[in-house]
Simulated scan of single mutants.
Amino acid sequence: MSIMEKTLDIKKATRAAFGDEILKLGKENKDIYVVDADIAKSCKTINFAKELPDQHINVGIAEQNAAGIAAGLATTGKIPFVSTYAVFGSLRMAEQIRQEACYPMLNVKIACSHGGLTPANDGGSHQAIEDMGVYRSMPNMTVIMGSDYYSTRKLVEQAAKIYGPVYLRFTRGDIPVIYDENEEFTIGKAKKLNEGKDLAIIANGDTVHLALEATRLLEKEGVSVKLLDMHTIKPIDREAVLECLEVGRLITVEDHNILNGLGSAVCEVAAEEGKGKVRRIGVQDQFGESAPYEKLLELNGITVENIINTANELLI
């Protein structure tokens, strides 16, 4: 069965994928450490802490210290994963990661749950809508968000193998499982889910399943859609974007501010090439609020219906 035909009935949070994969990796490699900011239960590193206590450090509610300790561990050949909420991992410790991980090019991984609007009822203070943009602008940083449980596990595994700073973003809530456990992923290379010639859609993270459903409905209407899962937004897969620009009409979909995220990365390529029409669907440069996750997506137009409407407007 192809991904386009697969039902999306099973749902799992990608933070659970991180918890499962980091425990597996830690058992295989004693140099892998988790540096927690006192929220191991929420970030799903609690089993790592219990089973591998010698590779686990809890610094308390002190994310800036976590970044410094991780950098210190990296100088000794360890592979530290700092684990916290995305809003704190990107903003509260941004200076420390810039100065102590990116600038000296140390092997520090920042693994953050509660990305985008997925904290939902926790409100705007806990919804990281600018995190990938913050780290996308830092030299030497790689920025990744898997679109489901299995892609996230594979990308975490790869992040542990490559050298250098990596930002990994996970969902708080459950999202549909798109892939199976045998699917392969490569950091920096988009995953093509469908081939098409009328329109291209590029999505990442928890919006890929929405783009997939919109693609199915558009195809039923006779629209040929190229669909990409752009799990890595830095480095962006330029060749994949260029293929989409050859189609001519392109929509980006993300659970992130439309400024400096996936949409901006794609528009930069389009502007440099001087071709294609791009429409960005994402958080409309506004803070979230306390509401159900689906309602927050709706308030920002991150819906199947809006993807289809935007597609139809481009096709006129």
Score class of each variant (00 low, 15 high):
293 Y>A: 13
296 L>Y: 09
135 Y>H: 12
260 N>F: 12
132 M>G: 03
75 T>G: 10
140 N>R: 09
25 L>M: 14
240 A>Q: 10
77 G>H: 04
258 I>T: 10
34 V>R: 04
216 R>C: 13
142 T>E: 02
84 T>K: 03
31 D>E: 11
30 K>M: 07
70 A>W: 02
90 S>I: 05
136 R>L: 06
113 S>F: 00
183 E>P: 01
15 R>V: 07
88 F>K: 06
316 I>H: 14
197 K>F: 04
61 I>G: 03
75 T>S: 13
95 E>K: 13
151 S>D: 08
186 T>Y: 04
216 R>H: 15
138 M>K: 01
211 A>H: 02
100 E>D: 14
33 Y>E: 08
173 G>Y: 07
169 R>S: 01
282 G>V: 08
124 G>Y: 11
287 F>L: 09
21 E>R: 15
18 F>V: 09
182 N>S: 06
117 L>K: 06
236 I>C: 13
8 L>K: 09
31 D>P: 01
160 A>M: 04
152 T>F: 12
137 S>A: 10
186 T>N: 14
146 G>K: 07
165 P>Y: 12
147 S>M: 02
234 K>L: 05
227 L>I: 02
148 D>L: 02
164 G>C: 02
232 T>I: 05
252 T>F: 00
85 Y>R: 07
60 G>V: 09
145 M>I: 11
62 A>T: 03
314 L>T: 05
267 C>S: 15
27 K>I: 09
298 E>R: 12
125 S>W: 05
150 Y>S: 07
14 T>A: 04
295 K>C: 01
136 R>N: 12
225 V>S: 07
296 L>A: 08
14 T>V: 04
2 S>M: 13
7 T>G: 08
308 I>G: 11
9 D>R: 15
86 A>M: 15
163 Y>K: 15
111 A>L: 01
10 I>G: 07
100 E>P: 00
271 A>P: 08
315 L>D: 14
255 D>K: 08
114 H>K: 07
309 N>H: 05
283 V>P: 13
306 N>L: 08
142 T>N: 11
260 N>W: 07
42 S>H: 03
316 I>E: 14
132 M>T: 05
85 Y>V: 11
